[in-house]
């Protein structure tokens, strides 16, 4: 049902836009902006969500059992460090990483290990590295701060939640139940298992993406960007403004460097680094998608710690650069 809701919603958005273009009838500017912004978030994210689901299927169904576990170090810290580098081989942006992270949990990874991958992969991946380098080069250490900051945040979060005594309590009850389902419940052949997982994951993720995109579009229309830009030169306010902007804009990590580049003349470099570290991990759309997997309490804790770590990255860059 949810899959149908998501597909119909996206189709409706595109249909309304096409109809309006052809009919000569025009919506108020705010509504047009909302429509455009929401569609752009969906269009930008959709290929990566599908790619993420496909990679999740590969991990759960097609890779031999325990193959990933086999080559990882036994020491939990080193193990999470290795997992945080997975993004280099799985160039998927943050939305696509959620189904993949869910697949990793189902496939036997612990929740903190999966979280480590989830937080690091959108930043430590080749497309993000290339686009960030194209936008900023090595100016002000923004690229280096983004990579090291992303790795540090992912591993600190992984360590923190590894101390939680009940890992299943970190997950929503529905996803926890999903993880407990025996492997052969998905179907008999690998192909039917794959189809089953695709439908199930898509029906969970797509509506969340659709709603997240709509909320992101609505907030962008409601919050004047000038207000954020006016704060750009204050060491503290510039960082907070960039975190709010990243949260609201919900732009994909593969292209966010180009989005923020025009702000680089106004905002301090540390605030740009904060935007590039915080945005791929926490934004409206991501919280909507993450809510399919983690409890609200976990998401609040995650947001607070990631927010503080991102701010620290920005403040250090401002001091050093």
């Amino acid at each position: 049902m949810w899959l149908g809701f998501g597909v119909v919603g996206i189709a409706a958005l595109l249909g309304i836009r096409a109809f309006l273009e052809g009919s000569g009838f025009s919506l108020p500017n705010e509504l047009q902006d909302l429509l455009t912004l929401s569609i752009s978030v969906v269009i930008e994210s959709l290929p990566f969500v599908i790619l993420g689901i496909l990679l999740s299927i590969v991990v759960q169904v097609w890779l031999p059992d325990g193959i990933l576990m086999k080559y990882l170090p036994r020491n939990p810290v080193l193990r999470r460090l290795c997992i945080s580098m997975f993004g280099i081989f799985l160039p998927v942006c943050e939305c696509g990483n959620v189904p993949l992270a869910r697949g990793l949990i189902v496939g036997g990874f612990t929740v903190p290990e999966s979280m480590t991958f989830l937080l690091a992969a959108p930043i430590v991946n080749p497309i993000t590295i290339i686009t960030t380098h194209q936008a900023f080069g090595f100016d002000d250490g923004i690229l280096v701060a983004r990579l090291l900051g992303g790795l540090a945040i992912a591993n600190i979060i992984g360590w923190l939640f590894s101390l939680h005594p009940r890992q299943d309590a970190l997950l929503t009850s529905s996803f926890a139940a999903e993880c407990r389902r025996p492997a052969d419940e998905h179907g008999h052949s690998r192909t039917s298992k794959s189809v089953d997982i695709f439908i199930r994951e898509a029906s969970v993720i797509m509506p969340a993406l659709f709603i997240g995109a709509l909320v992101a579009g609505a907030i962008q229309v409601a919050v004047p960007r000038d207000v954020l830009v006016a704060l750009g030169s204050n060491p503290l306010w510039s960082i907070l403004a960039m975190m709010v902007l990243a949260f609201v804009i919900a732009v994909c990590s593969n292209v966010d460097a180009f989005f923020i580049l025009p702000f680089a003349n106004t905002f301090m470099p540390g605030s740009i680094a904060t935007f590039l570290v915080f945005g791929p991990i926490i934004d409206i759309k991501m919280l909507a998608i993450l809510r399919t997997t983690f409890t609200t309490r976990v998401l609040v804790q995650l947001t607070v710690v990631v927010g503080l770590l991102s701010a620290l990255v920005g403040l250090v860059v401002n001091y050093v650069a």
């Binding site: 923190l160 005594p165 309590a169 060491p235 503290l236 607070v304 770590l309 620290l312 001091y319």
Partner: peptide
Amino acid sequence: TEGPAFRRALALTVGALVVLCGVFLALGY
């Protein structure tokens, strides 16, 4: 369900980060 070790680590992490942010903010100013 969180247990004392997790709660303590979370509080210490948040506290340490707040202090570090304050230090670097002051240095920046």
